[in-house]
């Protein structure tokens, strides 16, 4: 069920797009109305979620320290794993966001010959970083459809992405690798019993969605050979707010588009918000300097305490007998 429902959902979206894209009268809906709606939902939703996190207070300074603290001057502290100041926090966050530092630490524990042993295990890190890097590259390459003239840096990206010089149109590696990485992330989800056990439909849905997007994109570029000039004119129409349906760009393009729109609209309401959330994690984005600088809790309030006076009142005789000094004789 957990796998089946999201699979059917993605398949349905795909088929719906094929059908709608084939009906000329409905092309405006799928090509213009839905994309605009999706982008608005994405931006508004994303911003709302970020603002929601941003506005919520951080009452305590709770970094997870993964290295030596700043202490005596002759003990070397680990600024990257246990930052003592803001600039080091930026470095720690950069390592986390760009290189997935914490995942890189991953270990695997198992019982071997009656003993519990732990070993380094980097597969998830590799799969994740390849997935995100290729996704980003694909996204970057698509920017050429959104700007005119195409900036030089995008040409460089394309050049690097196609340096193996295979086939016509020339093969971009990122798309294929993205597809493989998605398959890997899916495969581990159903293959590793623990991961399968914890997975929700919401974990499979975006994987299927991204798989379908990548597959339809590859199909369009290498097999049906979509009218790329028409696509660019169509997208520039959307970008310049003068949308016009381009005849003959093919139903597979509309399927690709609707899947992307689904992803955009789904994004702010899903776990995909980890993309923004990672920046707000107090265990990573704070300096471990709470003994040096007082961290302020905006909602700190007075609490009922048991004062020394109350304590002495209760135990005065016993304290006197024990020879303890008293405030009130």
């Amino acid at each position: 069920m957990k796998v089946f429902v999201p699979l059917v959902a993605v398949a349905a979206i795909f088929l719906l797009a094929l059908i709608l894209g084939g009906i000329p009268h409905l092309q405006f809906l799928i090509g213009v109305v839905i994309p605009y709606a999706a982008i608005i939902i994405f931006i508004a939703g994303f911003v709302a979620r970020i603002m929601d996190w941003f506005k919520s207070p951080v009452p305590f300074c709770i970094p997870t320290t993964c290295g030596q603290q700043k202490t005596l001057p002759w003990i070397k502290n680990n600024e990257l794993e246990n930052p003592s100041k803001g600039s080091s926090v930026i470095m720690r966050m950069a390592l986390e966001v760009l290189l997935f530092r914490s995942l890189f630490r991953n270990t695997f524990s198992e019982i071997r010959d009656g003993r519990l042993v732990h070993s380094s295990r980097k597969w998830l890190w590799l799969g994740a970083i390849v997935f995100h890097a290729t996704f980003f590259t694909v996204l970057l390459r698509h920017m050429r459809l959104f700007v005119e003239p195409v900036p030089r840096c995008l040409h460089v990206v394309e050049l690097l992405d196609s340096f193996m010089q295979i086939g016509t149109p020339i093969l971009y590696m990122s798309g294929v690798i993205l597809l493989l990485a998605t398959v890997y992330l899916f495969a581990r989800r159903i293959h590793i019993p623990q991961v399968k056990y914890i997975s929700l439909p919401a974990d499979y849905f975006p994987l299927f969605l991204i798989f379908a997007i990548a597959l339809s994109g590859i199909f369009m570029r290498y097999f049906t050979k979509v009218d790329i000039v028409g696509v660019k004119q169509f997208i520039m129409g959307l970008v310049t707010l003068s949308p016009r349906i381009q005849p003959g760009i093919g139903t597979i393009f509309y399927a690709h588009l609707l899947l992307v729109c689904t992803l955009l609209a789904y994004f702010p309401f899903s776990k995909l918000m980890h993309a923004g959330g990672v920046f707000f994690s107090p265990t990573r984005n704070m300096a471990n300097n709470s003994r040096i600088v007082r961290h302020i809790n905006p909602w700190n309030y007075k609490v009922k305490v048991h004062t020394y006076e109350e304590y002495e009142d209760e135990f005065r005789e016993k304290m006197r007998k024990a020879g303890l000094p008293l405030d009130k004789e």
């Binding site: 979620r49 996190w53 914490s102 995942l103 991953n106 998830l124 994740a128 590793i192 623990q194 991961v195 914890i198 997975s199 929700l200 974990d203 776990k271 918000m273 980890h274 959330g277 990672v278 994690s281």
Partner: peptide, 8 residues
């Protein structure tokens, strides 16, 4: 909000 259930 942000857990992706990667299982790490």
């Amino acid at each position: 909000d942000v857990c992706v259930r990667c299982g790490a």
